[in-house]
Amino acid sequence: MIIADKKPIEEIIQEVKDYDRLLVLGCNECVTVCEAGGKKEVEVLASALRMHFIKEGKEKKIDERTLERQCDHEYLEEIRDVIDQYDAVLSLACGVGVQFTAEKYHSTPLIPGVNTCFLGANEQRGMWTERCQACGACILARTGGICPISRCAKRVMNGPCGGSSAGKCEINKDLDCAWQLIIDRLRDLGRLDDYEIVAPIKDWSTERSGGPRTVVREDVQV
């Protein structure tokens, strides 16, 4: 899923201080699971903002709403009848949700309430780690199911680099060396010989480098 982290409340206060009527808009998907932008976080943030502005002697309307998803037209339509009641929307969705909401409600300023971080997994309660950079051309079949693009600090396709030490990365002793993991897994799979296959120069055009991407699936279009 998409992993996001809360923005510091001081930063949010700076961004929203000039709007008198604010909708704090959560999302029920990824940001709910990673506890950064779901209903609960909306409640807490809205309450904190209300208190901050009351204390400052400012009269503000700060409402709460959480949509099933902010990355789908149909759910975003649910706020169409109330959007005019607000001067701005503080969205706790990922960057996708924030933008999609902004596109739909063109004349309403949108402020992001979270920092969208990466595509990752719930490693343990309160800890999420990156697993995918959405390069658009998956090579996991050749790397023992472990991705060197998202998990190696140098995205080395033929690793490990000389900085791998005791299974850890040169940039951080707490970070596993992706290539150590790849080699361990290849060994366990009885495929260590595959290590010597040289990975060819990668076509990055399906990645961010190729410009904004679109997936068109005519088979599912109506």
Binding site: K154, V156, M157, N158, V198, P200, I201, K202, W204
Partner: peptide
């Protein structure tokens, strides 16, 4: 950058 690696 790491468009290519040292082997490549």
């Amino acid at each position: 950058v790491h468009d290519i690696d040292s082997m490549q």
